[in-house]
């Protein structure tokens, strides 16, 4: 298993992603430049967080149209694993690989804090076996997930809501929703379940020393793949 960590100008979680995969999950991981056009030799892709292209126009809008993204789309279509974290989630939405969009937080504040997550889907490769409440950090100004009512109903009926923001006991309340996301959605899956986008940062929670190693439960999907 070899994971591509895509580097866009302005991304700032690329090193976190690379080293958490290498050191804490014992995976092989290499950087791929945004202008590259091939993912040959890779088995999975992570789009890390940051502020790609200064988040000009809209978060992730320019990155979503970078040369590497056509290859990421092909990769996703083949059923291979793609995860977008934070800005990477925004990029996947802008690229049309995931439904919806991310808007300015309801309280207009940049939020840097731990949140609790409940895995709603338990069958996708990313969420399989995640049966307890996860504590994982968020760090974003524009993480309010929105989509139209029809899309929301489809996400629910097709079991594509990967994570919801909850409190420590797993209850979905207004207070436990940090950014005003519709239905407290913190992460969604594509229809096949191989593409995950989420605002919280699992790569920042891969060892106890960092405060939590709950992120491993999500990233462990990459260890389960047999190539």
């Amino acid at each position: 298993m070899k994971v591509a960590v895509v580097r866009f100008p302005g991304a700032n979680c690329d090193q976190d992603a690379l080293w958490s995969l290498r050191d804490d999950l014992c995976l092989s991981a290499e950087y791929v430049w945004h202008e590259d056009t091939s993912l040959a030799g890779f088995d999975a892709v992570i789009l890390p967080g940051g502020f790609t292209y200064g988040d000009y126009l809209r978060c992730g809008a320019i990155a979503a149209r970078a040369p590497i993204m056509a290859e990421v789309a092909r990769f996703a279509l083949e059923g291979r694993f793609v995860i977008g974290v934070c800005n990477g989630f925004q990029v996947l939405c802008e690229a049309g690989l995931l439904p919806g969009a991310l808007l300015l937080n309801q309280n207009q504040k940049f939020l840097c804090q731990d949140v609790y997550l409940r895995a709603e889907n338990r069958t996708s490769p990313w969420t399989e076996g995640v049966d307890h409440i996860l504590r994982i950090p968020i760090a974003h100004g524009e993480g309010r997930y929105v989509c139209d009512d029809l899309t929301l109903a489809r996400l629910a009926s097709e079991d594509r809501i990967a994570f919801r923001y909850v409190d420590a006991e797993g209850r979905q309340t207004e207070e436990s929703n940090p950014n005003g996301s519709v239905d407290s959605i913190a992460g969604v899956l594509n229809d096949a379940g191989n593409v995950l986008g989420m605002m919280p940062h699992p790569e920042r929670a891969t060892r106890k020393l960092l405060g939590s190693d709950d992120g491993r439960q999500i990233l462990a999907a990459l260890c389960r793949v047999t190539v």
Partner: peptide
């Protein structure tokens, strides 16, 4: 294709 996101 770029300037606006039809979702929002």
């Amino acid at each position: 294709r770029l300037l606006a996101n039809p979702v929002i």
